[in-house]
């Protein structure tokens, strides 16, 4: 597998607005790509297109070398781990039941499931006693760790992360950022990560795709975006993201 995700001239319209407009983008195997842009630029929709939660009106989405279609979407989703900002944990299931739901449905062996849960809990550094709790009794950071365990349970090739740290307070967020980056390196997964924070994008990846109004305006490292902006919007966006820090330091 050379290419984990490929969008080929993909367009997606909602009833009254264009969300994704003729986007072509590739995520190579083992690579982390950070999608960034102002809210409403279509970055979350692009992620949903990759998970088959939305379907393109034009173009095609290829995941792990297969074109996404209604008849293979269930199978392909099992090769994908999907984490959203709110965690998306099912409130009626305990943490461990959330993590193992898909595996139990697929009738994986009980021992295999137990081993895998133990392994993942260690990987995401979740205390063992948190596993038996219900989502409402977990801290925000723990919820995202559980959500990550759920996404990793079936050992997917691809991770789709939609602002996974967006709802966390800065201290927790910082700790998780470190953990996540280490984890991506160690597992060698292909990752498509949505964020609206330029510093976070730069922290995770040399490979940033900046979106605006449904289109990818520039792809490159953080340095590239600063040194060789493709258009005025790129400079404005980078500047706006640096603004407060810079002003605070200068002032």
């Amino acid at each position: 597998m050379s290419c984990a995700i490929a969008f080929e001239h993909v367009s997606h319209r909602y009833l009254h607005a264009v969300a994704v407009d003729d986007v072509s983008l590739r995520v190579e195997a083992g690579e982390t790509v950070a999608l960034i842009g102002p809210s409403g630029c279509g970055k979350s929709t692009l992620l949903k297109l990759a998970a088959g939660l939305a379907w393109p009106q034009q173009g095609s989405v290829i995941v792990t070398d297969r074109k996404l279609a209604p008849d293979n979407v269930l199978e392909i989703r099992r090769r994908i781990g999907y984490v959203i900002q709110s965690g998306g944990l099912f409130p009626h299931l305990s943490a461990v039941d959330n993590v193992t739901l898909a595996a139990r449905f697929l009738r994986k062996e009980r021992q295999w499931i137990a081993d895998r849960v133990a392994e993942l809990a260690e990987l995401v550094q979740l205390p063992r006693d948190a596993l038996d709790r219900y989502p409402s009794n977990l801290s925000g950071g723990q919820r995202q760790r559980v959500s990550l365990m759920r996404a990793l349970m079936l050992d997917p090739a691809v991770l789709l992360l939609d602002e996974p740290l967006g709802a966390l307070d800065p201290m927790v967020r910082h700790g998780l950022q470190e953990d996540l980056r280490r984890l991506f390196k160690r597992l060698g997964k292909s990752v498509l990560l949505v964020t609206h924070d330029m510093a976070e994008a730069a922290f995770f990846s040399q490979n940033i795709a900046l979106m605006r109004e449904g289109k990818v305006v520039q792809r490159g490292s953080y340095r590239d975006l600063i040194d060789a902006p493709a258009e005025q919007f790129v400079s404005d966006f980078v500047k706006a993201q640096r603004g407060l820090h810079a002003e605070a330091l200068d002032g």
Partner: peptide, 26 residues
């Protein structure tokens, strides 16, 4: 987002209904 999380797990419609949607609507 809960509905989509269940879909993203690769569960077929009947399983989503049984394990996620009906318990949440219970």
């Amino acid at each position: 987002d809960l509905r989509e999380s269940a879909e993203a797990l690769g569960l077929p419609r009947i399983a989503r209904l049984r394990y996620v949607e009906l318990p949440l609507a219970a």
